[in-house]
């Protein structure tokens, strides 16, 4: 028999993996490109609404909708990067914040206009709603799958960054942008691709989040806060850092709600403050 703490750890870790998917792109754009994209969770929200539309209205299988959620967010981010973000790469932090927070407000209003402010129900097939019993505890199938997807993506990202030529080019451009250009690396293109990849993962996270936390237009702001916590605790630009921070914060959030309900959702902020006092640059941060 497993004590209930394992159930709390499991739920917390699953929630952490969701936070990881939502935030890894933000960490990369902030850490590598020094661009403050507060509209990151609007791309996540887009992924969520695309999934709701495809599954509920057009009857797509949930798993077929996930890649489309990824693509929709990635493509939308490229469109914004090309037309708006690119102009502000060398602008002040304040300019970047104002532009992207404005985009977030617009996305929230647009979502409310098109989909109303109601929570979107997602009709999942029965097998995804079930759970597996193991040593007296029930593990939700959906959360198991969520963890599996997040682990696979982490492995893929790390492998891509550490062991491919494209990954080495990204690291070179982060180390020394001028030298990278001087050797013929198209730094703008590499960054645009990275940005699209990060936004696509947020879109995937938005799709996977519906079943766990629901979806309404406030998503773009609510989860922006969590994403920024994960990014600052994990350390800018560090995939491993985002992963560790998301896991720790997910577990402490769920554990807090379970064991000290009076503190409720507040515990996650205490954990953040504690971790940042211990390591101001974040768990894996360099600066």
């Amino acid at each position: 028999m497993l004590p209930p703490i394992f159930g709390v750890l499991f739920d917390g870790f699953a929630y952490g993996m969701l936070l990881f998917l939502l935030s890894v792109g933000q960490s990369v754009t902030l850490g590598m490109m020094n661009f403050i994209n507060l509209a990151h969770c609007s791309f996540a929200m887009l992924g969520g609404y695309v999934t709701v539309l495809l599954v509920n209205r057009y009857g797509w299988p949930f798993f077929a909708a996930l890649p489309i959620a990824f693509l929709a967010a990635a493509l939308a981010s490229v469109a914004f990067e090309r037309t708006l973000y690119r102009r502000l790469y060398r602008a002040s932090d304040l300019d970047q914040v104002l532009l992207t927070i404005g985009i977030t407000f617009i996305s929230v209003a647009a979502a409310a206009y098109i989909f109303t402010t109601a929570q979107q129900p997602l009709q999942l097939p029965a097998y995804l709603r079930g759970s597996l019993s193991f040593m007296g505890l029930d593990f939700a199938v959906y959360r198991l799958i969520l963890i599996g997807i997040a682990l696979a993506i982490t492995a893929l990202l790390v492998a891509c960054l550490e062991y491919t030529r494209f990954g080495a080019k990204i690291r070179a451009a982060v180390d020394n942008e001028r030298m990278a250009r001087g050797l013929g690396i198209d730094v703008d293109r590499a960054f645009a691709l990275t940005f699209a990849l990060g936004s696509g993962l947020a879109g995937l996270g938005g799709a996977l989040a519906i079943e766990i936390v629901g979806l309404d237009p406030s998503f773009a702001f609510t989860y922006l806060v969590y994403v920024l916590i994960v990014v600052s605790v994990g350390g800018l630009g560090s995939i491993g850092g985002s992963f560790a921070a998301a896991a720790v914060l997910g577990i402490s959030d769920i554990a807090g709600k379970y064991y000290v309900p009076q503190l409720g959702a507040f515990l996650i902020y205490l954990v953040m403050v504690g971790l940042l006092m211990w390591r101001p640059a974040g768990l894996f941060g360099k600066r």
């Binding site: 030529r165 080495a168 080019k169 690291r171 070179a172 982060v174 180390d175 020394n176 001028r178 030298m179 990278a180 050797l183 013929g184 690396i185």
Partner: peptide, 16 residues
């Protein structure tokens, strides 16, 4: 010289 510090010697060559 501006060697990329977080790349190995071989990666410094391969990226170029």
């Amino acid at each position: 010289r501006e060697i990329f510090p977080s790349l190995s010697v071989e990666e410094n060559l391969i990226v170029a």
